[in-house]
Measured scan of single mutants.
Amino acid sequence: DLSALRVEEVQNVINAMQKILECPICLELIKEPVSTKCDHIFCKFCMLKLLNQKKGPSQCPLCKNDITKRSLQESTRFSQLVEELLKIICAFQLDTGLEYANSYNFAKKENNSPEHLKDEVSIIQSMGYRNRAKRLLQSEPENPSLQETSLSVQLSNLGTVRTLRTKQRIQPQRTSVYIELGSDSSEDTVNKATYCSVGDQELLQITPQGTRDEISLDSAKKAACEFSETDVTNTEHHQPSNNDLNTTEKRAAERHPEKYQGSSVSNLHVEPCGTNTHASSLQHENSSLLLTKDRMNVEKAEF
């Protein structure tokens, strides 16, 4: 173990290094160091905050020279020094078990990766560091076993998940096959086929009936047209017969005018059967003409 005197000496050296690497504005270890034209180094955030307070150039807090945003430059070497100082402080805390008085939040800088452990060898070769390295080497064999167990647990979990997924996939297939086998029997399929065939026959029977009705309507229309044509021909046949009657009536009127007047009046009210309204109107006109002729003949006879 380190003596108290040596611990104090190391602590004083760390404090001196820390004062050199402090920012003059925030009085902390410089984060993202930036250098000016006057070779003074500050935190990048502190300098941008200072420049944004005034429009135009501002003055350096140490030498009062003008500073602009374009004049600022990043210093990589200074950032490396800060990183190495942080590593020294971490090693000091691990070796002594004491917390550094002016320690900052170094938890963000710590890294437990194997590459980081290899890099620590180049920091300080001390008894405390050696003991700590031995402890780490002793704890390393235990870690692979834990990793193997965790991997086995994960693989077993994956296997159970896969088996569950396969079961879920197989179950719908089985149910679907069961439904297909038990849903419709052979008799049901035959009945469905016969039902479809009967429906098709009914459709075939319905369509000819409609065509037959249309044919019957067409035949009825044709018969009505033929009947009207026969009526017209009958009226045409009746007209010459009426003319013959008129000639006979004229002759009778010349011989017996008194008797014919009474008979002509009675004939006005008689309509021949089986004739249309057109034929009756023609008869009325003929009878009126005959009456006028008879009157003329009677007057001539009187004179």
Results as ranks from 00 to 15, higher is better:
residue 142 E to H: 09
residue 18 Q to N: 02
residue 228 S to W: 05
residue 88 I to A: 02
residue 155 L to N: 10
residue 266 S to K: 07
residue 82 V to M: 00
residue 10 V to M: 02
residue 273 C to I: 12
residue 141 P to E: 06
residue 277 T to S: 05
residue 230 T to K: 15
residue 250 K to E: 12
residue 35 S to Y: 13
residue 285 E to G: 06
residue 236 E to K: 13
residue 90 C to H: 12
residue 85 L to G: 05
residue 165 R to V: 06
residue 246 N to C: 14
residue 32 E to A: 04
residue 297 N to K: 05
residue 85 L to I: 11
residue 50 L to C: 02
residue 111 N to Q: 02
residue 264 S to N: 06
residue 62 L to Y: 02
residue 36 T to F: 01
residue 145 S to D: 14
residue 138 Q to Y: 05
residue 10 V to A: 03
residue 130 R to A: 10
residue 78 F to S: 15
residue 162 R to G: 06
residue 279 A to R: 13
residue 116 H to E: 13
residue 69 K to P: 10
residue 127 M to E: 10
residue 219 S to G: 04
residue 288 S to V: 06
residue 142 E to Y: 10
residue 154 Q to D: 14
residue 63 C to S: 00
residue 117 L to I: 10
residue 39 D to W: 01
residue 99 E to C: 07
residue 149 T to C: 06
residue 128 G to C: 05
residue 232 V to L: 05
residue 116 H to Q: 15
residue 98 L to T: 12
residue 163 T to R: 10
residue 159 G to N: 08
residue 147 Q to G: 15
residue 240 P to A: 12
residue 267 N to A: 12
residue 150 S to G: 14
residue 5 L to P: 11
residue 215 I to L: 05
residue 135 R to F: 04
residue 93 Q to H: 08
residue 129 Y to I: 09
residue 141 P to A: 04
residue 67 I to F: 04
residue 186 S to P: 14
residue 72 L to I: 02
residue 204 L to V: 13
residue 264 S to F: 06
residue 52 N to L: 05
residue 101 A to V: 06
residue 28 E to A: 02
residue 131 N to G: 14
residue 22 E to V: 02
residue 164 L to Y: 11
residue 278 H to Y: 06
residue 206 I to P: 14
residue 302 E to K: 15
residue 216 S to V: 08
residue 106 F to T: 07
residue 8 E to P: 06
residue 148 E to N: 13
residue 119 D to N: 10
residue 54 K to F: 06
residue 220 A to K: 02
residue 183 S to R: 14
residue 9 E to P: 00
residue 298 V to L: 06
residue 114 P to F: 12
residue 6 R to H: 10
residue 27 L to V: 02
residue 263 S to L: 04
residue 191 N to G: 04
residue 299 E to H: 15
residue 232 V to K: 06
residue 53 Q to D: 07
residue 103 S to N: 03
residue 148 E to I: 05
residue 249 E to R: 09
residue 86 L to F: 04
residue 258 E to W: 07
residue 302 E to G: 14
residue 259 K to I: 11
residue 166 T to N: 07
residue 78 F to K: 00
residue 222 K to I: 12
residue 44 K to H: 00
residue 260 Y to K: 13
residue 282 L to R: 03
residue 216 S to R: 07
residue 283 Q to L: 05
residue 196 C to W: 05
residue 24 P to V: 00
